[in-house]
Design a protein around this nucleic acid. Structure first.
Lengths: 196, 196
DNA sequence: GTCTATATTGCGATAGAC
DNA sequence: GTCTATCGCAATATAGAC
């Protein structure tokens, strides 16, 4: 196993274990055994357990830096909102542990929150707020909307749908095959409301 | 300190510490010292650290059993939805640690999830689904709504607003004084959408 | 019912061999 | 660069005094 392979192996194992049992729920002994390397490698490469955790966090939130992907087109605001919903769902589908780090850091921040997590989430929200403001300027959306509240309402629908999976899987099908239907449904509710 | 006082003191201290640092982030040493009692009292009263955690969980989610409070009136569906939003916000305002246990158990369930947390959340969702179905039957809501998805969209708006506090407090005022405005705003978006 | 004292296990970190 | 062996400390749980 070469240098980079070893580093990546440790990060990959740590991502799963920290997500499943939290920073304090995993020992570096178990971590190194699961990765098939010596315990001292964690100090050597990451400066200790917390350093490894911070590397995991950094990787988890790195994709948030590319949120602009949804807005490079000069599409109208509604299309951009749908792009965001699609984008965040893909993120969660491709990374089963992201939501865990997301909620864990928001409700129980570590020392790395302000350096890694807050900027990542902040950037996404900032981009979304601009989309809503643009839609208001262009007379597509209502003028009495508070942009930040509106963004949180929209992001909340999607994030909570994923978050609630464990509690609602007896009630609805949470498989990715239903994602397109869900996106249409949530776009519909968000834009037109539930009234007949 | 009498028997009950000691038990309550331990639960109250544990609620804060477990919320702040997780089940594995707190030792019973620290817990008993903070409560001003001997370490052996935790085993004596709760059968160990996990037993204490389970008692904390039970207390945190006990109020979910009284969700019917919002629906005893024969009010129409829209009024009941507003009652729910008010009810869940009050829960979070009165208990600063509830959301932490909520998200922690959903993304990282302990052995107590299925016995304590899932039934509590399940009951709330079930009550809300009935409200939406009632509104559809009464021709107040659109007929093409999926009731469960719709409930998750609505609950998601509120829950995520609270969840995002740490990441958005520079952007909006999260103080309880603004709650009434938020409730009106979210009722408005949920019922009528954001389109002009 | 509550305490102190202790048994036992496991932790994170690192020195030093290779 | 990677390992083994070990240090010093803190963890949970409990036995036994009061």
């Amino acid at each position: 196993m070469d240098k980079n392979e070893l580093r990546n192996k440790l990060i990959s194992i740590a991502t799963r274990l920290f997500a499943e049992r939290g920073l304090n729920g995993v020992s570096i002994r178990e971590l190194s055994k699961a990765a098939g390397v010596s315990i001292s490698m964690i100090s050597y490469y990451f400066g200790g357990k917390e350093g490894l955790y911070s590397s995991v966090l950094q990787e988890q939130f790195s994709s948030f830096g590319h949120i602009e992907e949804i807005t490079t087109t000069d599409a109208e605001a509604l299309v951009k909102i749908e792009s965001y919903i699609r984008w965040i769902i893909v993120r969660y589908r491709n990374n089963p542990y992201l939501l865990r780090y997301y909620t864990s850091e928001l409700t129980n921040p570590t020392q790395f929150f302000s350096l890694i997590v807050q900027p990542a989430i902040g950037k996404v929200i900032q981009v979304l707020v601009q989309i809503i403001e643009e839609g208001i300027s262009n007379n597509i959306f209502r003028k009495d909307l508070n942009p930040v509240d509106t963004v949180l309402a929209m992001a909340g629908m999607v994030n909570y749908y994923i978050l609630s999976t464990l509690a609602t899987q007896e009630l609805i099908n949470h498989s990715p095959e239903r994602d397109e239907e869900l996106i249409r449904h949530y776009m519909d509710i968000f834009t037109k409301g539930i009234l007949r």
